[in-house]
């Protein structure tokens, strides 16, 4: 079995990796909330009788 190659490029310390992960999770949550907000907004703006219109 081949030995794993040594890392190349930028190597982050464990603290930096933890910070980056926390930032990524926060961005993910924010984007998810934005999607939910726009969805709720769309439903609210469509109103209750959206299905009754003539096609």
């Amino acid at each position: 079995m081949a030995r794993p190659k040594p890392p190349t490029g930028i190597v982050l310390s464990p603290a930096q990796q933890r910070s980056r992960r926390a930032r990524n999770v926060a961005i993910g949550v924010a984007v998810g909330l934005l999607v939910l907000l726009v969805y709720a907004l769309t439903i609210a703006k469509l109103g209750g009788h959206v299905g009754d219109r003539a096609l």
């Binding site: 040594p6 190349t8 930028i10 982050l12 930096q16 910070s19 980056r20 926390a22 930032r23 999770v25």
Partner: peptide, 23 residues
């Protein structure tokens, strides 16, 4: 291998290596 102090890719390194938290 690029370390955090080398000029090459310094901006990328500075951003990726930030210790900033969501708070």
């Amino acid at each position: 291998m690029t370390t955090m102090t080398e000029p090459a890719g310094r901006h990328e390194a500075a951003f990726a290596g930030s210790l900033a938290l969501p708070g």
